[in-house]
Nucleic acid binder design. Sequence first.
DNA 1: AGGTACGTCACT
DNA 2: AGTGACGTACCT
Length: 439
Amino acid sequence: MANMSSSVCMETPHTHGHPHGHTHNYNPAPGRDFPLQIDSCVNPVLDYSAQMERYRSFATFYKNTATAAPFPQTAKIARIATPLFPSARISAMPPWPCDNAMLWGRKHANVNPPHTHHRTAMSRAEQVNVHMASKHDSALSMSAENFLSPLAAENCRGLPVSGAECMNRLKPVPPSGANGDPDRNTTFGGMPGLGGLSLPPGVIVMTTLHSGANSSGVAMSDSAFQIANVADCQHSGSSCSGSPANGSINANGNATGSCSGSASGAAKRKRKRCGVCAPCRRLINCGVCSSCRNRKTGHQICKFRKCEELKKKPGSSMENTREPRQQAPQIPFAGFSEKCTYGFHQTPLHRRRMQIILALSTQKSGLQQVAQTDSDGIIDQGLLVLSRPPGLTVYSEQFAPDQKNHVNTASVSCVGRSLHTTLPKRRGGQVPGTQTDLS
DNA sequence: AGGTACGTCACT
DNA sequence: AGTGACGTACCT
Ligand SMILES: [Zn+2]
Ligand SMILES: [Zn+2]
């Protein structure tokens, strides 16, 4: 605690990549991590609009019909979400109506190991996951207090600290994951900056103007939280090429190709989700689609999470067969083989400015970092924050307010992966629940 | 045992 | 095509 402020790592935007000669400096190669940079305001938006419309209708329906707890799992979520969003406990409402504990890394994802799947059209930098559920403020109440005080932006600036100190945060923390009791000091709980003024080890500052189109008044904060299951390549050295048995999300040693037991079981073999497509990377159930609503009897995954591959007919795209050929392109998460939890949060500042915060945490080591916009500036360049290996490297990359669609989109790169989020500009009682699986 | 979700079918 | 239901594979 004494070093709350001293443990802050912060780089200024000019660093643009090689502040300390860290191992994993990010080369902002356009087209690599952010191939959609240019049209990121187009495709994602379309996606957003489509889903938004859909969600609205669902939400409207539920607003009128459902009353207390349309989603019985809410309590569970609230409990699970607590470490990140304390008020969730208070309100007993999840940030979004869904029932997915997996999103917090406590559930197992049944997916094909990456190397057995031939990815098709999925760019890892694709932007997806626009989740919006029309709800009331109750659902939003968790935002501001839960994540970061609006003042934090001001307070976090200009706190030069050596990367070494960031390493202090690397001390192992009991995997809250076990489940059950995610009490404070786990995951984000140990992130002092999220509740008050000081900041966690890493701080990125990305800035932008919040073109608040309308709503001159101050809006409440919105946030989109994401959990990333960072399946990494056995840090240092052996990449995860061969065995899927390393305990990361994609590595549930299942019988993907090897068919456990009976080789010719044929017939009823269930295909498994690819784990890499956009829907697969989405970890949070929307809670409002037909599958979510009908989960009890339908036994179907959320429509927004339905694997693209599984949507295809079993026969098509010889993908289903075995043959790995070569593992899907994977970005090395150097020295980072843990699940990573991250959340975006935006808070309106004075005068149309919007602060975007990215908080990131590994569940096991407790490594935490936060990236956020500051109140004046220019975003463009990302800066990097970090701690050294096996730390995280976070770069702010892009923040783009979209006037027409009233959303803000933020993209950052984290340990080689891009994270993207879309947040509603106005409070409107909408709670984005986006997520991206980084694996 | 219990949860998740794939495959499939019936109904609309 | 969308939805709801069921059986059940595959997990923990
Ligand atoms: Zn859904
Ligand atoms: Zn998939």
